[in-house]
Nucleic acid binder design. Structure first.
Length: 232
DNA sequence: ACATTAAATTCGA
DNA sequence: TCGAATTTAATGT
């Protein structure tokens, strides 16, 4: 069983839990390594646990109606995903694959449901997480027709730097421009241009195989600022 | 799509 | 084990 320190390190949501709740959480988590390219869960399959990324990068994606792969998000260290399928006890509606060697924490369904039934702190975290995601997807819908690729890239990165989802996210993201493209729904060359634009504005720094986010707040604000400028 | 550059790996001493 | 040579991966245009 993982110790308390480790629990706090791999699961921000555990920090506010009562002692007995933390005990449960500790006993319900197992850690597992996934090599680059391996599948974490497949669409349509029942895969019980709630999934936390300890280290690495996971792509959460789905097949569109036309059979195209659509990446919803890149989940990196500190992020947890899959609560929808756990809560509804239904097959996964998406697949998740490791984009690089990754280290995951799996919270089994029984423990998840126990925390869900007993812990106010756990529920608060879940609601906050769902709310942040809802905000993200609503913004996507709003901006869909504008097709401003820089804003799309900014939003994809903002999700990965979201202070609620990743309270102590590393400012350094190990992510290639091609991966940024898949998360933002733009081509790699377009992602390249968007990243240059964001760098020019001092929001981030480009590095080989990664990025450092210099101004997470501006990243969050980018879409609105840019939208206002477009109207004016 | 092609050219360039950075990093990772292999290989010979 | 060091570093040059080769291959692979990421980036720039």
């Amino acid at each position: 069983m993982i110790d308390k320190d480790r629990l706090h390190r791999i699961a921000v949501w555990s920090r506010e839990l009562r002692a007995d709740e933390q005990e449960r959480a500790r006993s319900g988590i197992t850690e597992r390594r996934y090599p680059r390219g391996s599948s974490v869960c497949e669409m349509g399959k029942v895969f019980d646990p709630w999934i936390g990324v300890v280290d690495g990068l996971i792509s959460v994606r789905s097949l569109s109606a036309e059979g195209k792969e659509i990446a919803f998000a890149g989940v990196h260290a500190g992020g947890w995903f899959g609560e929808g399928s756990v809560l509804k006890d239904e097959p996964r509606r998406y697949e998740a694959i490791a984009l690089r060697d990754s280290h995951l924490a799996l919270l089994d369904r029984r423990t998840f449901m126990w925390l869900f039934e007993h812990s106010a702190a756990f529920n608060r975290f879940l609601v906050e997480q769902l709310n942040e995601r809802l905000g993200h997807f609503m913004a996507l819908l709003e901006n869909d027709r504008k097709l401003d690729s820089t804003a799309r890239v900014a939003r994809a990165l903002a999700l990965m730097m979201n202070p609620v989802l990743y309270p102590d996210a590393d400012r350094r993201l190990l992510i290639t421009q091609e991966e940024v493209g898949t998360f933002a729904g733009v081509s790699r060359p377009t992602a390249n241009q968007a990243l240059r634009e964001l760098e020019k504005r001092g929001i981030l720094r480009r590095e080989y195989g990664g990025l450092t986010i210099l101004k997470p707040d501006l990243l969050q604000a980018f879409e609105t600022v840019d939208a206002l400028k477009g109207v004016a």
